[in-house]
Design a protein around this nucleic acid. Sequence first.
DNA 1: ATTAGCACTCAAACAAAACGAGTGCTAACA
DNA 2: TGTTAGCACTCGTTTTGTTTGAGTGCTAAT
Lengths: 347, 347
Amino acid sequence: MELDDRKRKILQAIITNYLETGEPVGSRTISKYTDLNLSSATIRNEMADLEEMGYIIQPHTSAGRVPTDAGYRLYVDQLMLEKDSEVEEIKETRNALIERVDRLEEMLKQVAKILASNTNYATMVTAPHYQNTKVKFVQLSQVSEEQMLAVIVVEGNVIKNKMMRAEQTLTNDEILKLNILINTFLQGASLADINLEMMHTMQQQAGKYAGVLEGVFQGVIEAIHEAEELEIYTSGTTNILKYPELGDISKTSELLEAFEEKKVLTELLDDAMSKEDNTGIQIYIGDESPVKDMKDLSVVTATYQLQEGAKGTIGIIGPKRMDYKKVVSTLKNLTEELDLIFSTKKE
Amino acid sequence: MELDDRKRKILQAIITNYLETGEPVGSRTISKYTDLNLSSATIRNEMADLEEMGYIIQPHTSAGRVPTDAGYRLYVDQLMLEKDSEVEEIKETRNALIERVDRLEEMLKQVAKILASNTNYATMVTAPHYQNTKVKFVQLSQVSEEQMLAVIVVEGNVIKNKMMRAEQTLTNDEILKLNILINTFLQGASLADINLEMMHTMQQQAGKYAGVLEGVFQGVIEAIHEAEELEIYTSGTTNILKYPELGDISKTSELLEAFEEKKVLTELLDDAMSKEDNTGIQIYIGDESPVKDMKDLSVVTATYQLQEGAKGTIGIIGPKRMDYKKVVSTLKNLTEELDLIFSTKKE
DNA sequence: ATTAGCACTCAAACAAAACGAGTGCTAACA
DNA sequence: TGTTAGCACTCGTTTTGTTTGAGTGCTAAT
């Protein structure tokens, strides 16, 4: 059976209406709602076809129709046309953002929060993360008689502080020498470079201060891991409770726990990053999501760029019946803003 | 009317039973449950008295009795005797903890999480925070040609990294001198000490490198603020959903939002810190809590000590019908453990 | 002072009935 | 041949009524 233009229009009308009301939509509604001027009976025939084709379904015999996952998919792929309004709202967002940018972390938390309160969905944002991170700089210093501090800076300006118990007090001169030694070897090194051999060589050259290096190595490795780790900030998670179509609370609360845990989100975002297409927008409808707990939800993700090629992701999680148009355009605008902020604000 | 011994016993029986079952408890149950050997009729009379005194209440005419806030209060103050069992469980916790201690922050998150999964209530933990924090150590260094890094360590080993754009490249010697200057002035300084005068004096002495100091000052102030800020970690917040007695979801979800926001929690914990008694345990039942959204919940908080006199708080939030005995003893044990860990592990 | 007994209350559980939105199908129509 | 009016039918939802039973307060007997 062919999906002709009329069927398309009807399907679109059904989905649009359902997105608004959340109620199954009947033939009579469509008959009046659209400008097709068709009677409800005709619509009914078409609806029967659409159901056969798998785009809509009846929750029970005498109810209206509701879109299936396939229906939503067709909608977001073909039927939904972009909505470029509401740019003002985003402008505001931008200002709110720029004001508070002091640390990347704080800023991303803000992004998640603002987005959540704007859309009324749950949101998540990841910090941009790198691969094969290299050490930029290491600084060892004596804080007090018993304490030494190693500061490690890696690509992406992730900074790791490693506080160590000092076994002996070093003179400034000795520290200087150690610092030179450390930086000679470690600058530009990635995790793969820091092997046992390198460590041995360095410890030999350090002589009686070899002990201090232990802590440094440990710190460097931790720093790299931290930089490569996918840190996720969430907000508005409780918005999920607002969609009663998700049925029983127990499932929803499981989902909330998953959010708190954040591990499953990593999975989802990794997937999104890998599948990324030209627009940077990814939509998961129901079962399409790699996270099985989300089979009754939809997820929309967008990728933003940090200057050095590092990428981060923003995601919105809501009911399948979400305002895809708005969400997509909001995300597009937001990622553009972020790209802009990051490219100008080279720190 | 007097609260004689028999009434006490009956009240205790009612509350104990209610804590277990969550159902209103009737006279017949008590008649069999206790070893008082009284008929249900007698119990009924006593219950009528207890109701008049305000310790219990009937949800509706033909139902059993349920404790009021006053009833719970009497229970936790007088009727409940400590339960010193289940120490093994906590021992485990301690081991799990010690293994993972690498950063204070991580550790406290762990504490919150473990506590939540042990008790099935929502938990919160604050990092110990200081007042009048002093600068311990500042280290300025050149990361690359365009970037300088100021590392600021303040009391409590809170470390702040301030990355700055470098306007000119400095020699090692110049940096050394600047570091000496900075530390001469700033070491041991608290927020109050760092005034315009001090800043001017320092900038004069720094000569053409005065610009660099701007960033340092800023970093120092941020570091102190960060150290004094009350950071709160929560876990198991979704456990709140498991207690249907809280009635409608809308209220519960408001509460969850409050948790996400964390501001209200600050209020609560501040209150707990100020009211603290000799045991360090505080119990808020329903309306006693300063947070109005929590009127259907109880909160138990405990204070722990960090070596230098800095204090942090652990809190458990659950339904009024919570296992107070277990919660209190768990918290006591846990704070003792923490005190221990912190006092031995002087870093 | 305690208890047995009894009439009474009321939420909860269950059952039956009424409702109504929406369907599929058929037959008539343009 | 596509469209539409009409109608019988389905089935979830809502309403209304009925039963049940846990629990009470009161009274009178012990």
